[in-house]
């Protein structure tokens, strides 16, 4: 994603603020959890300003590989990662360098140094943005995996725990897993076993690689244990024992 997505009212407001702030010589702090678009918004504010990880930047300054006189503004990601952040900000202010920073949280130690603050909320609070991002990642994933045609979106397992990062990952995984063929699944298992097999292995323990997915899938499909035992042609007592063994009962 190269542009900040703003479909929700809140994201539109943040983008509006970023656009206004881009013409002002003031320090801007963008906060919010991981994966909400802080870096993209920082680029809107900074235009062509150079960007660095804050920790890396502080080390570059220490090593004198960055000439502050040559900088008029700088984008610093994850400023909480720098221990002496107040000192770094002061140093930049003394050299009239405008700071556009991102952080996971508001920190009172340096908050007053930033006159403009933009707070981005988690994606789960912005369903309009989620929908656009979902469509974007879906299109991207389909192109990557050469999957033509429509996708059944009800089969996508969406994960917003890490916002856009987990959303993208979950869409790619869903699309990949939903389109695997039998030989590809066997290849994956074989590949896994080649990497993990040791000198001594318990065959029964390795069986869980087959049994757990099978029992989970059967549970979803056949709902009751009675139906599961009937359709899988397995003794009910044995089935119950296996479900208990894998904490699936």
């Amino acid at each position: 994603m190269k542009e900040f997505i703003a479909a929700s009212k809140e994201a539109k407001n943040s983008l509006h603020m970023a656009n206004i702030a881009s013409s002002m010589p003031v320090n801007v702090l963008i906060t919010g959890p991981r994966g909400v678009g802080k870096k993209l918004l920082a680029k809107v504010v900074a235009h062509d300003g150079k960007s660095y990880d804050a920790l890396e930047f502080s080390q570059l300054i220490k090593g004198k590989t960055v000439d502050l006189n040559q900088l008029s503004k700088v984008v610093l990601y994850n400023i909480d990662g720098v221990k002496n952040i107040s000192q770094l900000i002061e140093q930049l202010e003394q050299n009239d360098v405008q700071i556009i920073a991102t952080s996971d949280s508001f920190n009172q130690a340096y908050l007053e140094k930033f006159l403009v603050k933009i707070e981005l909320s988690p994606l789960q609070d912005r369903p309009e943005d989620v929908e656009i991002l979902k469509q974007h990642f879906l299109k991207e994933a389909k192109e990557t995996f050469f999957l033509p045609g429509d996708t059944d979106e009800s089969k996508l397992r969406i994960d917003l725990s890490q916002n856009a990062i987990s959303l993208k990952e979950s869409i790619y995984k869903s699309l990949l897993f939903n389109n695997l063929k039998k030989d590809q699944v066997m290849d994956i298992v074989e590949n896994y076993l080649v990497k993990t097999l040791e000198e001594e292995n318990d065959y029964k323990e390795l069986l869980e690689l087959f049994e757990v997915p099978l029992l989970k899938a059967a549970k979803k499909r056949f709902k009751s244990q009675l139906q599961m035992s009937k359709r899988l042609r397995i003794n009910r007592v044995t089935l119950r024992k296996k479900l208990a063994k894998y904490d699936l009962d």
């Binding site: 603020m17 013409s23 002002m24 003031v26 006159l115 403009v116 933009i118 707070e119």
Partner: peptide, 20 residues
């Protein structure tokens, strides 16, 4: 002292502090 649009500053400050 720089020439500036007053409302953009009010907008920035208002949103920075009162958002949410």
């Amino acid at each position: 002292y720089k020439s500036v649009n007053l409302y953009t500053l009010i907008e920035l400050s208002k949103n920075s502090i009162l958002a949410g």
